[in-house]
């Protein structure tokens, strides 16, 4: 009998202890952090590790063979004088401005058109969502062939219509062709966000405006647009974040040639074609800091916009 007592005690102890940990984890004070543990673990492994790795090698010259040589800030100096990198940066901004503004304009136009109830609404919506969900890589391979000079469907159609064939991948045009592909894939995003926004606008305000005799254009500018602005912000911020990292549309088409090299492609080329880890890390860190700076500002606006919509 005596031998059993410690066992029992132990079991009790274990039960008590287990519930204590559980209680601490779910207590009012710590519960919010408990919930974050899995996320933070994932991010620590997959984010911090490459970040520190790159930060370290950005001060070294290393091509994955032999010893890494410490070079101080030389890589950063080189980066700021690297014409190719600065050009890629400029092109990325250009693509960003073109794509975001076109998507917004097309999106707003179509949203105004499609926000009413009309027969076949579901069919239109279902079809128009397609581009958003198809793999960007497959689309880039597809468009590469569609825009081919001799056999591409686009030129064949142009020819059949009696028009001249166009060199879609010529140096002065290729970047815009890339923009077209991107816009084609993403305009439904802007469209449907704005459709949802338009449908949620309160009717009575517009009734009142009409009674007051306001012109439709005036109402649109003074009422509709301001009320949609949180959603427009969402579109701008999210698209900016995604566009800065634009990569897949280049992969199946120009592969960075004919003056279409964008930020992520030059980083890819440096890291995965030249395997210049030192310099590639520098580019990565620089572009991370840059995008975070841009996005931090935008994110603040976005959170305000999200708050405002609720």
């Amino acid at each position: 009998m005596k031998a059993e007592t410690p066992w029992e005690t132990r079991t009790d102890f274990a039960v008590v202890r287990r519930s204590t940990v559980w209680e601490i984890l779910t207590s009012e004070k710590y519960f919010k952090w408990t919930l974050l543990i899995p996320l933070l673990v994932v991010l620590a492994i997959f984010m911090l590790y490459p970040l520190l790795y790159c930060a370290y090698y950005s001060f070294h010259q290393w091509g994955m063979r032999g010893e890494a040589i410490y070079v101080g800030a030389q890589n950063y100096r080189q980066l700021l004088n690297d014409k190719a990198f600065l050009e890629a940066l400029y092109r990325t901004l250009k693509v960003l401005v073109i794509c975001v503004s076109c998507e917004l304009l097309i999106g707003l136009g179509l949203a105004l058109l499609w926000s009413r109830n009309f027969p076949g609404e579901n069919v239109v919506r279902g079809l128009a969502l397609f581009p958003l969900l198809v793999a960007p890589l497959i689309l880039s391979l597809l468009w590469n062939f569609m825009f081919e000079y001799d056999f591409g469907a686009v030129n064949l159609v142009l020819q059949a219509l009696g028009l001249n064939k166009v060199y879609w991948w010529s140096p002065e045009r290729a970047l815009y062709t890339i923009c077209f592909i991107t816009i084609w894939q993403w305009f439904p995003f802007a469209t449907f966000v704005l459709v949802a926004g338009l449908r949620s606008l309160p009717k009575d305000v517009f009734e009142a405006a009409r009674v007051d005799g306001a012109s439709p254009w005036y109402t649109f500018r003074r009422l509709t647009l301001p009320m949609l602005s949180p959603l427009i912000m969402i579109i701008v911020v999210l698209r900016t974040m995604w566009l800065i990292r634009l990569f897949d549309p280049l992969y199946g088409t120009t592969r960075g040639g004919v003056q279409t090299e964008l930020l992520d492609w030059i980083v890819y080329r440096t890291a995965f074609v030249y395997f210049d880890i030192g310099y590639g890390s520098t580019m990565a860190i620089f572009s991370l800091v840059l995008t975070i700076a841009v996005c931090a500002v935008m994110f603040k606006i976005l959170m305000k916009a999200l708050g405002g919509a609720h």
Binding site: Y149, Y167, W169, S170, P171, A174, V258
Partner: peptide, 8 residues
């Protein structure tokens, strides 16, 4: 002396 398309 080449077709314009040769450029790309």
């Amino acid at each position: 002396f080449a077709p314009a398309g040769c450029l790309t």
